[in-house]
Write a protein that binds this DNA or RNA. Sequence first.
DNA 1: CCGCCCTGACTAACTAGTCAGTTAGTGACC
DNA 2: GGTCACTAACTGACTAGTTAGTCAGGGCGG
Lengths: 275, 275
Amino acid sequence: MTDPDVRASIMRATYEALCEHGYTELTAQDIADRTDKSKSLLFYHYDSKEDLLADFVEFLLERFDDRVEETRDLPPVERLATFVDWFLYGPGEDDRQSFHTAILELRTQAPYNERYREKLRKSDDQLRDTLEEILRDGLESGEFREHDPEETAALLIAAFDGARIRQLTIDRDEYLEQVRSATVTWVFDDLLAEDASFPAERHPRTLPEGDEENRLAADFGTRDADAERGEAADEETNADNAGGADTDETNDAEARDGDGLEDDEPGDGDAGDRG
Amino acid sequence: MTDPDVRASIMRATYEALCEHGYTELTAQDIADRTDKSKSLLFYHYDSKEDLLADFVEFLLERFDDRVEETRDLPPVERLATFVDWFLYGPGEDDRQSFHTAILELRTQAPYNERYREKLRKSDDQLRDTLEEILRDGLESGEFREHDPEETAALLIAAFDGARIRQLTIDRDEYLEQVRSATVTWVFDDLLAEDASFPAERHPRTLPEGDEENRLAADFGTRDADAERGEAADEETNADNAGGADTDETNDAEARDGDGLEDDEPGDGDAGDRG
DNA sequence: CCGCCCTGACTAACTAGTCAGTTAGTGACC
DNA sequence: GGTCACTAACTGACTAGTTAGTCAGGGCGG
């Protein structure tokens, strides 16, 4: 993979395909269909589908890094609140939902796939380091009471991840609000010194405009592409650009500055290859 | 499915096959191979593979119900401690691990599969009801301080589920201990009235004998079957009883009283069918 | 004319589900 | 006690559909 534009275009196509089909039903053809190139080209650039998906996870990590960087200047309490909101957004943002559903499927393959596992571990490191950094900063500045940042970080990540997973898988939206509320009660209110109280959600459940919920889609041009594509799609066995996703110039520009892919909360993995 | 013995035998085979292959790589043949019957019979008893798996989840729920019932007499604090241990067992119990890994894969299919989603929701109800009951009992008896049992239950389930998932997927065992410890610090220590302190883990990380970790396997005869089976297995395309799992009399007896399948912490689901 | 990007057509492997037919059991009737 | 009718349980062989990955070659810029 030499050309970064080609990569960006494949990554975008992969993102869209994942949203529409989920991970297990994702085929190489699905990805190619969202490109103006053929399926064969995917195997020209990548040795296997797994290879491609692993690169996609890598791509996600780069994005996540950038997002974390943006918050570095905020005071600990604000940063912590932002962190919470990354996880406990929505519900009601369909593209994000279906994307995270797909990523969750991918995560559950990690125990059987060392490549995925490795990437997801890296992601877990990033996430935990970030959160621990926030907590330590708060300790140093005296905004937070004495506590064990490592354990607390583990608890928060596990709780938020668990809430999201249950919301996605059993469609129980109440987990998001309840876990947020319980976390504030049991953890944040104690964490903060006497007078302070933990700030409320940034993007409240009722979004002011259709603004925030379009970020992801907009960054990747998903919505537009969907609209344009409409029917047309495919007639039998042609993998050509019927579903062409974008005009070529906007392609790399968009992909480069839009930040897409909210949180990616990596999973983890274990075990060896299957029998 | 009229004959309960046949069902039990299929359930056992499904359990074993799931442990060995995981959910996504599970084939009808894999299940049949762990039976002394043919693959065709599975489709005689069930309309589809999905049908069979849905029944398997149902089967799991029945088991879980029984387990919950067993703890009903314990005082709230004890029950709560037992509950924690159900989730945060191990690591190091390989059969449980691989089983839960497989079930996690199944859970992530729930967003695309109404049948699974429905069953998993039922399981979620059971779990939450149980935990809320424990918390309310503790409130009534004065053992627990004032709090919101619903929110607290959501937090605990999400945190434990999240910890387990991260342990399974990225193979980060530390989540189990850290989340347990953080939960005791932030939640249980506050929950309990002044003097009391939350009891330690029942089956400590270093198991006294090889006793507890064999429960699951023993109940289903996994270990023995594995050992007996050894090589032999299959030569080309015969689905006969080369891997016969048990002598026929022991079959139903075992399946009937052994309780197998520890916790099953159901996930949830959403969305519609795939495109 | 070389080498890179790219493609359509193909295949090899796999697997859910079907189907025509066999076997074993049960009861009824002589 | 024999045999006939009927049925539920069961099977091996087969099919239809799917999809990752290959390959021989086309075009084109330098």
